[in-house]
Amino acid sequence: MSDQTPSHRPQGTALRRGWTTGACATAATKAAFSALAGGGFPDPVRITLPKGLTPAFSLAMQERGEDWARAGVVKDAGDDPDVTHGALVQATVRRGPPGSGVRFCAGEGVGQVTRAGLPVAIGEPAINPSPRAMMRRAVEEIAAQCNVSGDVLVEISIPGGEGIAADTLNPRLGILGGLSILGTTGVVVPFSCSAWIHAIQRGIDVARAAGLEHVAGSTGRTSEKAVQAHHALPDAALIDMGDFIGGMLKYLRTHPVPRITVAGGMAKITKLSQGFMDVHSRRGQADLGQLARLAATAGADPDCQARIAASNTVAEAFGHAQEAGVSLGDAVARAAHAFAQGLIDPQRSRLEILIFDRAGQRVGRAGFMD
Rank of each mutant, 00 (worst) to 15 (best):
Ser2Tyr: 00
Arg9Leu: 15
Arg9Gly: 06
Gly12Arg: 05
Thr13Pro: 11
Thr13Met: 15
Leu15Lys: 10
Trp19Thr: 00
Ala23Ser: 13
Ala27Gly: 15
Ala31Asp: 06
Ala32Ile: 06
Ser34His: 06
Leu36Ala: 12
Val45Ser: 12
Arg46Glu: 15
Ile47Trp: 03
Ile47Arg: 07
Thr48Phe: 00
Pro50Asp: 06
Lys51Arg: 14
Leu53Gly: 14
Leu59His: 08
Gln62Met: 05
Glu63Leu: 13
Arg64Trp: 00
Gly65Arg: 11
Arg70Gln: 15
Gly72Asp: 03
Val73Ala: 09
Asp76Ser: 05
Asp79Ala: 01
Asp80Tyr: 00
Leu88Gly: 10
Gln90Phe: 00
Gly99Thr: 03
Gly99Asn: 11
Gly99Tyr: 12
Arg103Phe: 04
Phe104Trp: 04
Ala106Glu: 01
Leu118Ile: 05
Leu118Asp: 01
Pro119Met: 01
Ala121Phe: 03
Ala121Met: 08
Gly123Trp: 10
Pro125Glu: 02
Met134Cys: 11
Met135His: 07
Arg137Ala: 15
Ala138His: 10
Glu141Leu: 03
Glu141Ala: 14
Ala143Asp: 05
Ala143Cys: 15
Ala144Lys: 13
Cys146Ala: 13
Ser149Ile: 03
Glu155Met: 12
Glu155Gly: 09
Ser157Tyr: 03
Ala166Asp: 05
Ala166Glu: 12
Leu173Ile: 01
Ile175Cys: 10
Gly178Met: 11
Val187Ser: 03
Val188Ile: 08
Val189Pro: 00
Ser192Leu: 01
Ile197Ser: 07
His198Asp: 14
Ala199Tyr: 12
Gln201Met: 07
Val206Lys: 13
Val206Trp: 11
Glu213Gln: 15
Ala216Asp: 08
Gly220Asn: 14
Gly220Tyr: 08
Arg221Gln: 04
Glu224Phe: 06
Lys225His: 10
Ala226Ile: 00
Pro234Arg: 04
Ala236Ile: 08
Leu238Phe: 08
Ile245Thr: 14
Gly247Leu: 00
Met248Glu: 07
Lys250Ala: 11
Lys250Gln: 12
Val257Ala: 10
Val257Phe: 08
Pro258His: 03
Pro258Gln: 03
Pro258Cys: 07
Ile269Gln: 11
Thr270Leu: 11
Ser273Pro: 02
Ser273Thr: 04
Gln274Cys: 09
Arg282Thr: 02
Leu288Tyr: 04
Leu288Glu: 01
Gln290Phe: 14
Leu291Lys: 04
Ala300Thr: 01
Pro302Thr: 02
Cys304Leu: 11
Gln305Tyr: 01
Ser311Ala: 15
Thr313Lys: 10
Ala315Asn: 11
Phe318Asp: 06
Ala321Lys: 05
Ala321Tyr: 10
Gly325Lys: 06
Ser327Asp: 14
Ser327Thr: 01
Leu328Tyr: 02
Ala331Lys: 08
Val332His: 07
Ala333Lys: 08
Ala333Glu: 02
Ala335Asn: 09
Leu343Gly: 09
Leu351His: 03
Glu352Gly: 13
Ile353Trp: 04
Arg365Val: 07
Ala366Ile: 04
Gly367Leu: 02
Gly367Lys: 05
Met369His: 14
